[in-house]
Design a binder for these strands. Structure first.
Lengths: 142, 142
DNA sequence: ATTCTTGCAAATCATTTGCACTTTA
DNA sequence: TAAAGTGCAAATGATTTGCAAGAAT
């Protein structure tokens, strides 16, 4: 995706997902978030606006979206899983200082290593770790 | 690495790590394991031979090895972390059926995407998921 | 003797589950 | 109204922590 869906309600229905209020709000949140949020983040941001929302629902919804391939989990350094609107054409850089995850476009559609002959590859992730420019700068100031 | 260290005792000392019996056995285990073991696996395999061994020690030791960059965590589908003798020159394929993790040599030393200019990259991982040849074959038999 | 490591049990934290209640189609 | 989704609280499971006992230099 990353092309914003305007009619989330209809979009979910097309995916064979019942369009509950919570699901619509969570997908909407994911669409407008560039922060690769964790469950806690989603819950904290949405809970004030949807007081009845429970963590379990956020987990349920994300697991459903995962199954339907609307979102992807990013394998991270750290305990909590982070989620991303599904899009195979980018990698991720995780800053070990501020924990921000950046999208990294990987220009050429990369060809898989020859060693993968005979494997059925359903997804691939390129993941980088290190220090982001902002934190590098901050470190220099000290 | 992946070039086996014969003198683990001295090797650990060179890294500034006190060579306790448990640490030696755990590093030895990792060196001779091609299964990208989890903490449970390591514990289960080693405990019969070292009855006093505790899970906490396995965690402690792995965290120490991580700090010293002797091992790397593989970000996986699934709950438990999986460990690997540190070696930046390969990626991983995780079979979603049997949960085996395969080393995938990535021939060319890949150049990083241009989008990473200004970032300090300390590690990169290329991670694939799907179905391994053996499980594909098994599926066909049905 | 001092310092570091171990092992146990308890604590913590992310995620899942069971079940009664509510919403959606 | 039937079927599916939600919310709560309790359960689970991985990992961490505090601390007393043990090992290494």
């Amino acid at each position: 995706m990353r092309t914003l869906v305007k009619n989330i309600d209809g979009f979910l229905r097309d995916q064979g997902i019942k369009a509950s209020y919570q699901r619509i709000r969570i997908l909407d949140y994911l669409q407008n978030s560039y922060e690769h949020p964790s469950v806690s983040t989603i819950y904290q941001d949405l809970h004030p606006h949807i007081p009845s929302l429970s963590r379990a629902t956020v987990y349920n919804t994300l697991n459903l979206f995962l199954e339907k391939k609307l979102v992807a989990v990013i394998n991270t350094e750290g305990v909590e899983a982070r989620y991303d609107i599904a899009d195979p054409n980018h990698g991720h850089f995780q800053c070990l200082v501020c924990d921000t995850i950046f999208d990294i476009p990987t220009e050429q559609s990369r060809t898989f290593p020859a060693a993968l002959d005979g494997f059925q590859v359903t997804s691939s992730q390129w993941h980088f770790k290190g220090v982001c420019p902002k934190c590098l700068e901050a470190k220099k100031q000290q």
